[in-house]
Design a protein around this nucleic acid. Structure first.
Lengths: 219, 219
DNA sequence: CGATAAAATGACCAGTAGTCACTTTTTGAA
DNA sequence: TTCAAAAAGTGACTACTGGTCATTTTATCG
């Protein structure tokens, strides 16, 4: 039977074409100003049809963020250099994020806006969200490099590795979200996103391994 | 003439009573679920009157955030200990923020939600917003302690002081905003807000002054 | 072909920020 | 005290939009 397969394929194509339309509209008008009617007419479908494929506007935002996330992951994978130590790799990951933000500003923006939303109030498929929150590959990658760093002695070992990973992730995301949301404040301070992140990476490079720290293992 | 003065006083009282009502409603139902009609009826006024005193719902949110900010400043002022060096004072400021968040969770929450909003899309009195963005006393305080630290040698001097200040501010705000917006992700990692901030403060304490750093002055 | 299921439609609903023509209250000069 | 002008306040109304669902259209297959 090829019909079921064909239908499945067509369903997935339609799904993607709706995300394409949402992307086009979001990237042009911004998330808040985009309406579901805009997206429907861009997709050449009725609004009702959108809801056969997605449960809410938030879920379309989620999908676009997820696409951006896939691209980011490629940047991060490319950035890793296992010849270097863990701490140097953490910096490379940070720099990869900046490169991604420059080469894919629209996806980057969509991701920052998604990160700034309160997850509790979003109507997004529970399963999908859970998978995203728990299994984020970017977190896993960070975690691997933190572990590598602790193993090779380039990263301090007085923090719980997964806590340190979470901190590094939230520092980076947090700074970038703040920059996206409060741009005028940064412009007033005459500091660009690149400069801000460069200083941040320098500061934590040294914080990750204070020179004279004695080595003691974490409980 | 006492009439003009009395009117001015009454106008200010009404203004405050509207903010009081907004606060009550926001703290109870959360910003998004609160309606202007809720606030109006709590204030025992008609909706139209609210708009004689404030230009938008966002502006009421701004006012509540501003009240929180005032309280935070008191915490920060109390925390400063000029007997100690600049770097130690920066940590004290960070800890004061955590104390504030514990003792005034509602204001803290309102501030985090305000920080997570895109300032460009908010209908807030330009003048008011400008003053807030540019003159924030919390930034000034941070800046003073950074300068003190550089002067007393407890803080590295290879960053531009105001850039470092901006970084410290956005790190702290960013982390807390992320925690507020993506709480489930942190809970999954089994890390509390206090732990996260404690690790953060430890990490930057060491990053702010790597032990073997040679002293060179910034251009 | 005709019945059944699947897909798509778009008029409609509910909720709410913000407006404005109108009403009520206050002021102060006559 | 009177009354017109100004100030303050009102709430019905508008505009907008995310989401729903009864109905229609299209595809499947015995």
């Amino acid at each position: 039977m090829g019909i079921a397969e064909r239908k499945e394929r067509e369903r997935e194509q339609r799904r993607q074409s709706i995300i394409d339309a949402a992307e086009k509209v979001f990237f042009t008008k911004g998330y808040d100003s985009s309406t579901m009617d805009d997206i429907a007419s861009t997709a050449e479908l009725s609004k009702g049809t959108l809801y056969l494929y997605f449960q809410s506007k938030d879920e379309l935002h989620f999908e676009i963020m997820d696409r951006g996330n896939q691209i980011l992951l490629v940047f991060m994978e490319k950035a890793i250099n296992l010849q270097k130590n863990g701490r140097e790799n953490l910096r490379l990951l940070g720099e990869a994020f900046v490169e991604f933000s420059n080469s894919h500003p629209d996806y980057f923006q969509a991701m920052m806006f998604f990160q700034s939303r309160d997850v509790e109030h979003q109507r997004i498929n529970e399963q999908k969200l859970k998978k995203f929150i728990m299994g984020r590959s970017s977190i896993s990658m960070l975690n691997n490099m933190v572990s590598k760093g602790i193993a090779d002695g380039s990263v301090r070992n007085d923090f719980h590795p997964s806590h340190l990973t979470t901190l590094l992730w939230s520092q980076m995301m947090g700074i970038l979200v703040m920059y996206a949301m409060k741009k005028p404040a940064f412009e007033y301070q005459k500091i660009s996103r690149e400069e801000l992140i460069a200083i941040h990476l320098d500061l934590i490079r040294d914080g990750l391994k204070p020179e004279n720290m004695e080595v003691k293992n974490h409980a």
